[in-house]
Amino acid sequence: MAPKPKTIISPPKPPSSRPHLFKNRMGLGAYIAAPESYPASVVIYYNADFVVIHDKFPKATVHTLLLPRSPKHTLLHPFEALQDVEFLEKVKEEVGKLKVLVAAELQRRLGSFSRSDAAREAVLNGDAEPEEGQAKTAAEGQEKNDKGKEPQLPPGRDWMADLMCGVHAVPSMGNLHIHVLSRDMHSPAMKHRKHYNSFNTPFLVDVADFPLGEADPRRIPKDEGYMRRDLVCWRCGKNFGNRFKELKDHLDKEFEEWKRE
């Protein structure tokens, strides 16, 4: 992933009435308050309005969290915070930037396995020459840019289509956070049914769906019973009922096929 900027941005000082940043559900507040104190392996980047971190317990190959730094919104329920149209637009813009980074990281990790990326990987590895109009190296790309031409690698897999993005209807942490992660659900940290269904039912609400209508059923997740739904493979649609161990074994196989698409 891209390294965090060297420019240090002074973190906002939390109000004295705010709960201790490092306790219980308020753990994300530490990253919001002082992102510069964490290494790039934890904090991916930050600016005056947002901090982006790697999820401490990732549920997929790449799993990031976007943390808004706005004191007005950080302790609100996401459904309430994202009703603010001006704030929502800022979040959507930052989510768009983060999705580009996550897709690039997913491609970096898995591109060598993907049939769709085979031609691109061959050029990157020096095993094939770029076609006309394509740049083989960064130097060549800069040279072509200087000549007004657009450098390109062979078209490959649309890794952006393999991403999910959203907020949970019942957040597990007190500070507002938006999940941006790969679709695969392949991780040792995905340990039980609740983990899986929280990302594979309408319990995860896409940021693009906001602002939500007043009658949107996702506003009352308990009534909808998302966590009690059958476990259904995100890729092939096979229903595993409540048999999480079988689903987990199945997802390992699906991951091997998915990364080779």
Rank of each mutant, 00 (worst) to 15 (best):
S10F: 06
K13R: 03
F22G: 13
F22S: 13
M26R: 04
L28I: 04
S37V: 04
P39N: 05
V43R: 04
V43Y: 14
N47P: 14
A48P: 14
V52G: 14
A60F: 02
V62S: 00
L65H: 07
L75C: 09
F79Q: 09
E80L: 06
D84R: 00
V85I: 13
E86C: 05
E86N: 10
E93D: 15
V95T: 13
A104T: 13
S114D: 15
S114Y: 15
R115C: 12
A118N: 15
A119C: 15
R120P: 12
R120T: 14
L124E: 04
E132S: 07
Q134H: 02
A138M: 05
A138N: 08
G141R: 00
D146C: 09
K149N: 06
P155Y: 07
A161C: 05
L163N: 07
M164P: 01
C165I: 06
C165V: 09
V170K: 00
P171T: 06
G174S: 12
L176Y: 04
H177S: 00
L181F: 10
H186Y: 12
H186M: 07
P188W: 03
K191S: 14
H192F: 08
N200P: 01
P202M: 10
F203G: 10
D209R: 05
D209E: 15
F210D: 09
L212P: 00
G213Y: 03
A215K: 00
P217T: 03
R218Y: 01
D223Q: 05
E224T: 02
E224H: 03
G225C: 08
G225N: 02
R229G: 15
V232D: 00
W234G: 08
C236H: 11
G237E: 11
G241H: 01
L247V: 05
L247I: 05
K248I: 01
K248L: 01
L251D: 09
L251P: 01
F255M: 00
E256Y: 05
E256V: 10
E256I: 07
W258L: 12
K259H: 06
R260F: 08
